[in-house]
């Protein structure tokens, strides 16, 4: 039964992708992108990737859409049609699609337990996680401990991208006669979004905190929690106006979260080295190696959550501030 549902969702996914490319209204395209992400999250969930589904739903359907919309508000939502070159583009991508489909016949079937990807380190991770970490979520264990270097790198990429956005949008626009528009009051004059949104915001943030601190036991962790809390604050900003959101969580706090989160992660690694272990080897942090691992993972997950939440919110505010200038 779930199989039929998966086929249905995948077909919808293809239709949505075609509609996104076909439409000439960018606003419609962005809204469809949000639906596309939600469908993708449902597909991830069917394929047993609960953590990834959570991330995709929070980031893809939530944060990405808002960032796209604030960019659209600064540029314009009509796309000019292009004449010519259509057939050659279609032929190129058609041939590519056929080649990839031809290549898939060499791939192992969906769910084949003997596929090469399941033979390498994955069984070892599944077997050793309860023994080394003492908690059940293998995804969190691999993310924060077994492959902690990877995650550290990713956090620094998020950090660098955030700094890049702040630099690019931090300079004043080149056009003269810039008078800051009236402070946007958000949706304060719309009753229904106001009432429903106000009810939702605390629960979204609470759920984000749950996902953060329950990440070792259920689907969740710093990346998901950061994105969920960011969506909660962005919802608040949309409801009450951007200035009000900045009053609740000022820019300096956001920057502190980005920098502090990345530094917290790195400094845990250095502390591990000072205490006689390898970089990011949390076992040395406590007398009992399992406790050491759990302590280390708790701290670095907090760092990841802070960095991701701060980065996404800083990016959102950078776009929103631009909007009220131009």
């Amino acid at each position: 039964m779930i199989f039929v549902f998966a086929l249905f969702l995948l077909t919808l996914l293809v239709i949505t992708a075609l509609a996104i490319v076909h439409t000439e209204n960018l606003f419609v395209a962005v809204m469809l992108t949000s639906i596309f992400s939600l469908l993708m999250a449902a597909n991830f969930f069917i394929l047993d990737a609960a953590d990834v589904a959570l991330t995709e739903a929070a980031v893809g359907a939530g944060v990405t859409t808002v960032i796209f919309l604030s960019a659209l508000a600064l540029t314009g939502e009509r796309e000019k049609p292009r004449v010519g070159g259509r057939n050659i583009a279609l032929v190129t991508v058609g041939i590519l699609a056929l080649l990839i489909i031809y290549a898939t016949f060499d791939k192992p079937r969906l769910g084949d337990p003997n596929a090469p990807v399941h033979q390498h380190v994955a069984p070892w991770y599944l077997e050793k996680t309860p023994e080394y970490m003492g908690f059940p979520n293998v995804v969190t264990a691999v993310l924060s401990s077994f492959r902690g270097y990877d995650t550290l790198g990713e956090v620094f990429v998020v950090f660098a991208a955030c700094i890049g956005v702040l630099f690019i949008l931090g300079v004043r626009p080149p056009r003269e006669s810039l008078e800051p528009r009236d402070e946007s009051s958000g949706l304060r004059h719309h009753l229904i979004p106001q009432v429903v949104g106000r009810l939702l915001v605390p629960f979204i943030v609470l759920f984000g905190l749950y996902v953060q601190f329950h990440g070792e036991y259920g689907p969740g962790g710093g990346f998901q929690a950061g994105a969920i809390i960011a969506t909660g604050v962005i919802l608040y900003a949309l409801l009450e106006g951007e200035a009000e959101a900045l009053r609740a969580v000022p820019r300096s706090v956001l920057l502190g979260m980005v920098i502090g989160g990345a530094m917290l992660f790195g400094s845990v690694g250095v502390v591990c080295m000072l205490m006689g272990g390898a970089f990011l080897d949390y076992s040395v942090l406590a007398a009992d190696p399992v406790w050491g691992q759990q302590l280390g993972i708790l701290i670095i997950e907090a760092g990841v959550g802070m960095a991701v939440c701060g980065a996404l919110l800083s990016i959102f505010h950078a776009f929103a501030a631009r909007e009220s200038l131009s």
Partner: peptide, 19 residues
């Protein structure tokens, strides 16, 4: 769990680079 970990982080990095 391994592909899940790779994609989990890639999604968040994806939105930052998109921004």
């Amino acid at each position: 769990p391994l592909p899940q970990v790779l994609i989990l982080t890639a999604i968040v990095v994806g939105v930052s680079t998109l921004a």
